[in-house]
Simulated assay, not measured.
Amino acid sequence: MLLKSEIDLLRAVPLFAGIEPSRLKLIAYTAETVMYRQGQVLCRQGEQGDAAFVLMEGEADVSIAAETGDFVVASLKTGDVVGEIAILCDVPRTATVTAKTPVSALRVRKEAFLQLVRQFPEVAAEVMRGLAERLSHTNAELVRARNLAAGQGGGR
Score class of each variant (00 low, 15 high):
44 R>G: 07
143 V>A: 13
96 T>S: 10
122 E>P: 01
35 M>D: 15
74 A>M: 08
131 L>Y: 08
62 V>T: 05
146 R>F: 05
7 I>F: 00
149 A>Q: 10
106 L>T: 04
86 A>Q: 07
56 M>Y: 05
92 P>A: 08
67 E>Q: 12
93 R>T: 06
26 L>D: 11
49 G>Q: 07
38 Q>V: 04
106 L>W: 04
33 T>K: 14
130 G>M: 12
53 F>R: 13
45 Q>S: 09
140 A>T: 11
36 Y>W: 07
4 K>T: 11
58 G>N: 11
8 D>M: 12
13 V>R: 10
123 V>Y: 02
28 A>Y: 04
68 T>F: 10
102 P>W: 03
53 F>P: 01
89 C>S: 09
104 S>D: 03
98 T>W: 01
62 V>R: 01
65 A>F: 06
33 T>R: 15
94 T>L: 01
99 A>D: 04
34 V>T: 11
42 L>N: 00
156 R>C: 04
70 D>N: 15
2 L>E: 14
24 L>N: 04
68 T>P: 00
20 E>R: 13
100 K>G: 06
132 A>G: 10
140 A>S: 11
27 I>E: 00
41 V>R: 13
141 E>L: 12
61 D>A: 09
8 D>W: 11
93 R>W: 07
61 D>Y: 10
15 L>P: 00
88 L>P: 00
77 K>M: 03
69 G>L: 03
126 E>R: 15
36 Y>F: 14
57 E>A: 13
105 A>M: 01
53 F>S: 03
106 L>K: 07
56 M>N: 07
140 A>V: 06
49 G>V: 03
151 G>Y: 11
133 E>Y: 12
140 A>W: 08
129 R>T: 13
137 H>L: 07
79 G>M: 01
27 I>D: 00
56 M>G: 06
27 I>R: 02
28 A>K: 05
116 L>A: 02
19 I>E: 02
80 D>E: 14
11 R>L: 00
51 A>R: 15
135 L>V: 09
50 D>P: 08
66 A>M: 13
142 L>R: 12
86 A>I: 03
6 E>T: 09
49 G>F: 03
94 T>H: 09
155 G>D: 11
133 E>P: 02
15 L>G: 03
